[in-house]
Amino acid sequence: MTKVPVQFTLNGREQNEFVDSGSTLLAALRDKLGLYGTKAGCHQGTCGACTVIIDGSPQLSCLTLAERCAGKSVTTLEGLTGNGALHPLQQAFMEGFAAQCGFCTPGMILAAKSLLDRNPSPSRDDVIDAISGNICRCTGYDPIINAILTAAEQLRGARKSA
């Protein structure tokens, strides 16, 4: 298989990799870089578990070719805990009991982060819309929606006091 060099920003740091041509970003993250925060659910774009943020927008890493990420900025779940502390979204998920098996959680959190980056004051419907491509089989979604709204509120508060 042809190897192609890819230069991109991963969680704020410059990353240089040789990836198999035609392989997915999901494979690069998990199999090459050992970043298991990104989950592989269906490998066909229907579950949302593999969601990452590419240049600000939520993308399915199982449908994204690794080589297409050249020059782009990719954020995975690991990028949220840069300074060792939990991100407000992670904190809110934990405190709001918004994870059970946890398989959907990384994708949910990144879909939510991308929403809150664009819209710091989302309505309940905005949140529902943002996570409608992410399947959860455990929680009934309600705790997830509430956790995202709680995190949004906290982030607004933090911004105000900053």
């Binding site: 269906c42 066909q44 579950c47 529902i128 409608s132 089989r137 979604y141 309600d142 997830i144 929606i145």
Partner: peptide, 17 residues
């Protein structure tokens, strides 16, 4: 054949619990 066609209630189909 996949999650697109196998229906489940999404976050927009929730009742009040």
């Amino acid at each position: 054949t996949d999650f697109n066609q196998y229906l489940m209630p999404g976050p927009g189909d929730l009742p009040e619990f």
